[in-house]
Design a protein around this nucleic acid. Sequence first.
RNA 1: GCUGGAAUCGUCUAGUGGCAAUGACAAGAGACUGUAAAUCUCUCGCCUUCGGGCUUCGUAGGUUCGAGUCCUACUUCCAGCA
Length: 404
Amino acid sequence: MLKFDIEKKNGLARVGVIHTAHGDIKTPAFVGAATRATVKALTMQEMRDLGSQAILANTYHLVLRPGVDLIKEAGGLAEFSSWHGPTFTDSGGFQIFSLPDVKISEEGVKFKSHIDGRLFEMTPESSMQAQWAIGADIHMAFDHLAKSESYEDMKEAMLRTHRWLDRCVEEHSKLSIGSRNAFSEGITERGSASISVVRPWRWAGRTRPEEKAFGYEQYLYAVVQGGTFNDLRAESAKYCAEKNPDGFGIGGVFTADGMDEMLKTVNTILPENKPRHLLGMGQEPIDLFIGAEYGCDTFDCVGPTRMARNGSLYTLDGRINIKNAKYTHDFTPLMEECGCECCKNYNKAYLHHLFKTDEITAKVLASIHNEFFIVSVVDKIRESILNDTFKSYKESFLKRYYHK
RNA sequence: GCUGGAAUCGUCUAGUGGCAAUGACAAGAGACUGUAAAUCUCUCGCCUUCGGGCUUCGUAGGUUCGAGUCCUACUUCCAGCA
C-alpha cells in the first residue's frame, strides 16, 4: 500500500508526504504534465531546477509512441526519461473525452490513432498492463468522462467508471502479485480478435522468475467521477473508497466554479489517510487554492506549459501576453519577485523579441517561468498551511492576481 | 534608341468586363485546464445609426450601363537587341 504521511491538517486541507520508490512528494504539490514522457520545451534537469517534484505521463500517447515495450525495456518511465523521480501515468481515459471517433462499449474503447489512423483498443485491463509496463509509480484507473453535462450522461459515465474500476483493481492486483512472484502467471488478453487492434502491452507469460519487470511497487488510484452533481460525486467517492485503492484521482473537473462544494463532498467521504490527485486542474491559480483548501494533495495541468508556448505568462498581477506590442520597449523583468531562471536573467523586451521572431528559446524560457510559477504557488500553499497562514495567503494572492 | 514584358493592401501574390478586390506573410488582438496544441480564432482602405456610404489596383485621358481587367499617352522597372 502506498505510504502517505500527513504532517498537518486544517479542515480538509492537509500537508503530507507521499513516499514512492523514486522519491518523496511533499504535498500539496503540482505535478508537471509530461504527456509524452517529456514536459514540452523543458529538459528534466530544468524541471528539477525549477522545483518540480513529480511528472505525469499519458498512457495513450506512450502506447502509440514509442510503445510501452520500449519503455519497459529502458527500465521504466523514470529511467527512460532521465527524470529519476516520482512518476504518474494517466490511464488514457481522458482521450475518450477529447478524441473524435471513439467507440465506447462496456468492454472498453476503440480509438483511431491520431498519428496514423490505426484502430486502437484500450480496455481497463490493457490500460493497467500498459501502465505497469511504463512503470510509473502511480497509475490512474481507466475511467470514462461523460459526453455531455447532462445528469443522465454523467451518471452513465460514472457507473461505467465504477464497473471499469472493478476490472482495473483486479488487473492491477494480478500484475502486482505477478510482480512479487516475478510474473509467474500470464495475463490473458481481452478484446475481440476479429478487428485489427494495436495491443498496448500484454504479459508475454514466458519471462523467467528472476526477470522482474521492475523491482519497485506501483500503485493504483481510483478515479471519482460525477461531474457537477454532488449526489453523483458522493456516490462515486463512496464506491471508489470501498475498493480500497492506494489513492484517488478526482476527474471531470474543468472549472473552479462549484469546485469547493464538490471537493467538500468528495473529500469528506474519501478516507483521510490516502492521497488525492485533482486531475487536470491548475491552469488558474484559484484552482490550486481551492483544491488544496478542500483536501487535494496533488495536481497536474497542461495549462502552464501550453500557456507558455503561446506567450501567455503568469505574473502576480495576472497573466500577460508577452507578444503584445506594449512590451517592445519594456526592459524590466517579467516578474520582479520571481526567482526563476527566466526572470533572474531576462527582460520583457527580450522575451517579446524571442516570441515575435519565433525562437525556440522563447518557449523554453516561458515554460520555465510558468511551470516555476505554478509549482511555487503550490509550494507556498504548503508552507502557508504549515504556518497557519493559508487563509491570508489565499486572500492576498487572489485579490492581486484577479484584481478583485 | 528599338522591341517585348510588368506596375494590385507594409511585402509577395490572385484577378482578362459586374470587385473593396484572392491567398500567404507581416502587423494588431483574443482563446487555451488529466496536451491530436511550437495550436486555434478574430481584425487588418476610410466612415457607419451595421442597412449601408465613400475612396481605391503607377499617372492622365478614353471606350462601356459598368474598367484592376479593353484602348491611347505618359512615368517607372525588367529582359533582349543595338
